[in-house]
Write a protein that binds this DNA or RNA. Structure first.
Length: 478
DNA sequence: TTTTGAGTTGTTCGA
DNA sequence: GTCGAACAACTCAAA
């Protein structure tokens, strides 16, 4: 073919890029485009949304990298559904190449773009790039999607061969990307956003940022299994936001995990497999974005008592580990994985708020927000999802705090008002004896909120809700 | 078709 | 403080 268009979306890199590789191989000339899609941007409430600034810098870096090789990246601001077919027509491209995206919104958008292109005699070619195995490449013996992680993981690993994570080398053909006309990058302000929220994050967007994080993590991956659950430690890779926007290739990450091996490499690889498990599930069962995977639990009427959600979101539940976690999220756009489970469990099983409200809040705040992983994680925590924990397993926020932040280091990092509270009471400051309160000048209720709920009572009420839901379904079914 | 083994990340209670 | 058992019954996946 004569001309291809590579449409960058959440694959903002040049290295090891499957869609770019196929476009460069298929066509004599390739042009490149990124669209700041108003169909997405218009839904964002926060004009200082960290993700827009993060992506904007990633796009700027990508454009500069292409220009250093004699090409360029055209950057548009509008509805991708209209802009992509219009650009394809203006430039007379034969086919548009893009990385396949498994989220419901993306699937609908791509179907619409494909239909418009097709009516004009052009094609949209979607290429597997953001996963090792596509949605139908790891199935049960009877050809159905796995619903339990462990057998999925076993099947995934059994199919893994080095060719699966071999890099798509594009470097030698990048000179086929040619500028049509001088291309401008609209400023963040022109897009209607500000960047100050990102400045506080000290995370470098783009391929360079990803490669710096990966280099740092390679030295720590062996200790990943031991350290990953302790939020005060530097245990995880911190690559989630870069992986979300494709600033690093999943194949490179799997390659690295294999190279390091051992329990550290295996545990980290397992996390990458979880990512694909949830992407595969959301694609096969798109309704689970809004509904419990286990239908019998979709009917639970969560009491949602007034003020509970706000206390959680504003980090004033009176449970330090939960409040510290929420301050980390609100202040940085990131939350440690262990804390995501604790905060989610607390909102649902202690505050009795519908898991969907929590999922939506995380969707607004997380820089690394990934719909499949977030929905899957929330449903797991709420005990309503596929492969969910047993319904009677309710996290105790004080036990979790004592176990995973034993010295209260993480708590005090985000709750300096607890600096003077002794380790023994930092997980439950309302238990601090009156004599100690006087000596320390710390008074629960004055210097830090009293607990909004009693955990033991809240836990008992949760078990009743679940028993009623499970019993009700059995009754209906019978 | 039937059977069998197993299921990310826990908590509480009582000895 | 530490340890083992109980917490229920169900569904999935594979033999």
């Amino acid at each position: 073919m004569d001309t291809a268009l590579i449409w960058f979306r959440r694959d903002l890199r040049l290295a090891d890029h499957a869609a770019l590789f196929h476009a460069l191989n298929a066509a004599r000339r390739t042009r490149a485009v990124f669209v700041f899609d108003t169909d997405i941007l218009d839904t964002l409430a926060d004009r200082a949304d960290r993700r827009v600034a993060f992506i904007w810098r990633g796009v700027a870096g990508l454009k500069a990298a292409l220009e250093a090789r004699g090409g360029t990246l055209h950057v548009l601001h509008g509805s991708a559904r209209r802009e992509i077919p219009a650009l394809a027509a203006r430039w007379g491209v034969d086919a548009v190449f893009a990385a396949r995206d498994y989220e419901p919104f993306a699937g609908a958008r791509d179907a619409a773009v494909a239909a418009t292109l097709h009516a004009d005699g052009r094609r949209l070619i979607l290429v597997k790039d953001q996963v090792i195995f596509d949605t139908d490449e790891v199935l049960t013996g009877s050809g159905r999607p796995f619903q339990v992680f462990t057998p999925y993981k076993r099947a995934w690993l059994a199919r893994l061969t080095p060719e699966r994570y071999a890099a798509y080398a594009v470097e030698e053909r990048l000179d086929r990307i040619q500028p049509e006309a001088p291309a401008l990058l609209p400023s963040l302000e022109a897009l209607g956003f500000r960047s100050e929220a990102l400045d506080a994050l000290r995370l470098v967007p783009g391929e360079a940022g990803a490669s710096g994080l990966l280099d740092d993590f390679l030295g720590r991956m062996r200790a990943y299994r031991q350290q990953r659950d302790f939020p005060a430690l530097k245990g995880p890779s911190y690559l989630s936001a870069h992986l979300r926007f494709g600033m690093v290739s999943i194949r490179e990450l799997v390659r690295r995990a294999q190279e390091v091996g051992g329990e550290g490499g295996e545990t980290w690889l397992s996390e990458l497999i979880w990512r694909e498990f949830y992407q595969m599930l959301l694609w096969h069962y798109p309704h689970t974005a809004e509904h419990a995977f286990q239908a019998r639990f979709d009917a639970i009427a969560w009491p949602d008592p007034p003020g509970h959600f706000e206390a959680w979101a504003e980090a004033r539940t009176g449970y330090p580990i939960v409040d510290a976690a929420m301050r980390q999220l609100n202040g940085t756009g990131y939350m440690h994985n262990r804390l995501r489970m604790i905060a989610a469990s607390f909102l649902v099983k202690d505050l009795h708020v519908d898991w969907r409200r929590g999922e939506r809040y995380f969707a607004e705040k997380l820089l690394d927000y990934d719909q499949a992983a977030n929905v899957g994680g929330w449903q797991w925590s709420a005990g309503v999802g596929t492969d969910a924990q047993p319904w009677f397993r309710v996290f105790n926020p004080v036990r979790q705090s004592e176990k995973f932040d034993p010295g209260g280091r993480f708590i005090r990092r985000y709750l300096p008002e607890l600096a003077a509270v002794p380790d023994r009471y930092v997980h439950a400051p309302w238990l601090l004896p009156a004599a100690a309160q006087a000596v320390l000048g710390f008074s629960p209720g004055r210097d830090y909120p009293l607990p909004v709920v009693d955990h033991a009572a809240a836990r008992a009420a949760t078990l009743v809700l679940f028993k009623a839901a499970a019993g009700g379904e059995a009754h209906l079914a019978g």
